[in-house]
Amino acid sequence: MAYNGDSDRSPAQQSALPTAIKLLVAGGFGVGKTTFVGSVSEIEPLSTEETITTASIGTDDLTGVGDKTTTTVALDFGRITLDPQHILYLFGTPGQDRFWFMWNELSDGAFGAVVLADTRRLEDCFPALDFFERRGTAFIVAVNEFETGYHYEPEEVRAALDLKPNIPIVCCDARDPRSATLVLVTLTKHLMSAAASSVR
């Protein structure tokens, strides 16, 4: 039985494991990342704790050269089963700046990112923009429109954030599944055109 065990498995089990696609939702503290992940996810947003070891470089304290610091970071994530062979996982990045070092690990293997911006505090997404630009991770900007916020036109946001002309900027309501899903569609189309124009 061990040798022809495949014959008594369901067709789904006989095929290869699905492909996991990772997208990130980043942005400043309280901008709506968890809300966004929850809106598009087919499951209640889940949370996991990941332990990260980081050399303590880049911190104020450089006395302990070579020291390793271990930090536990809670991550929200959601899942969308795209088809039997493809599962999308959407990870919300931790909002606090002190966890910036985590993003390297988080962004490994990520297809792309949505940077959420709040028009009341546009500058809060600068660290995320810098990070993805430096990493070469493809991203788009989604302006999460809070009622109390000033309404900017996308081109005003582009100017304020000094974004390149090819980076899509969309407005959304992170609480609305359709609106949030449309943001991911825009990101995917951006990834496709980036892939088509890359020489790789």
Binding site: T19, T81, L82, H86, L88, T188, K189, L191
Partner: peptide, 13 residues
Amino acid sequence: VLEALLNGLQRRL
């Protein structure tokens, strides 16, 4: 994979 992603998302709209 990108096409699977796009199709899977658009099916949810």
